[in-house]
Design a protein around this nucleic acid. Structure first.
Length: 273
DNA sequence: CTTGTGCCCTGACCGC
DNA sequence: TGCGGTCAGGGCACAA
């Protein structure tokens, strides 16, 4: 499931393949994956346009065009956006293929939760989820002071808060659990009960865990691959996610699974409080 | 305002 | 072998 490190990895791997490339044609195999506009307009406005440098905001991939429009992609659970050199035969879950002047861009999504938008760059704010995003956790907006201040006003459990994209952008279920484990904080801990040191530990864990995930090219549990079709390596470094019943690598406690905010939540009840 | 629930969607997995 | 049920979860609509 692509979270910030995965989407950033996709962005970086697609950048040299897309920047400056012109769209020769677009084939939409499943119009339902396009949030806006209608498939016909989507194709018409893409044809002949050239991609600029890709960007990322939270889990959204932003692909600006030289026409003033931008292709926006959210991969949700199982979406994949890959560049391939040769002609591509659409597979079962292939929904869109862009033919470029060099290669092909392919959008696939097994569960079809992902969405594509084509909007004017000046109207990106009309994409609701994108407009409401909190600060980038690896950017300068997320300082320890800012986080401590925001935590103080929140009664919600830390796990809920980390998953809230309007609080901080880009954290999903896997990294949320890894962050809380590194910080030594219980997922159900109320945000406003953290002392100064704990808030600082959470801040450091957010940045550290996401940076490591990114350095490892993301986490591949099942579906995720980057823009070149390469799997990530961070799954080999997960401390608690998906490890219920195993020993906590830090203290030897037993990793436990509970349900928080409707999500499977893995933590160590011994060293996370 | 916050918090919870169901929905979308398919494949993997489990028990019988 | 097959079949039904359950689970996985990001974001959103909707309800309490």
């Amino acid at each position: 499931m692509p979270e910030l490190p995965e989407v950033e990895t996709i962005k970086r791997s697609l950048a040299p393949r897309l920047a400056g490339r012109t769209v020769r044609g677009v084939v939409v195999y499943n119009p339902r994956v396009i949030a806006r506009p209608e498939a016909e307009e989507f194709c018409r406005r893409l044809r002949g346009a050239a991609f600029g440098a890709p960007a990322r905001r939270g889990k959204y991939l932003l692909l600006p065009l030289n026409t003033g429009w931008a292709l926006v992609v959210h991969l949700r659970m199982t979406g994949r956006l890959t560049w391939q050199p040769g002609p591509v035969a659409p597979a079962k879950h292939t929904h869109v293929i862009w033919e470029l002047d060099d290669g092909f861009l392919v959008y696939e999504d097994l569960r079809r939760f992902g969405r594509l938008w084509l909007v004017k760059e000046t109207e990106l704010g009309e994409i609701k989820g994108l407009a409401g995003l909190g600060p980038e956790p690896l950017g300068e907006g997320l300082t320890a002071e800012w986080l401590a201040g925001r935590l103080a006003g929140q009664r919600r459990p830390l796990k809920n808060l980390l998953l809230d994209q309007t609080f901080v952008a880009g954290i999903g279920n896997i990294y949320a659990d890894e962050i809380l484990h590194r910080a030594g904080l219980h997922p159900l801990r109320r945000a406003n009960t953290l002392d100064e040191a704990e808030a600082a530990a959470l801040w450091a864990a957010i940045r550290g865990v996401l940076a490591e995930g990114l350095a490892h090219g993301g986490t591949t549990i099942r579906d995720y691959v980057d823009g070149e079709g390469e799997s990530g390596r961070h799954q080999d470094f997960l401390q608690v996610y998906g490890r219920a019943g195993e020993k906590c690598p830090r203290c030897g406690g037993t990793v436990t699974r509970i349900k928080v905010a409707g999500r499977s939540t893995y933590f160590c009840p011994v060293c996370q409080s």
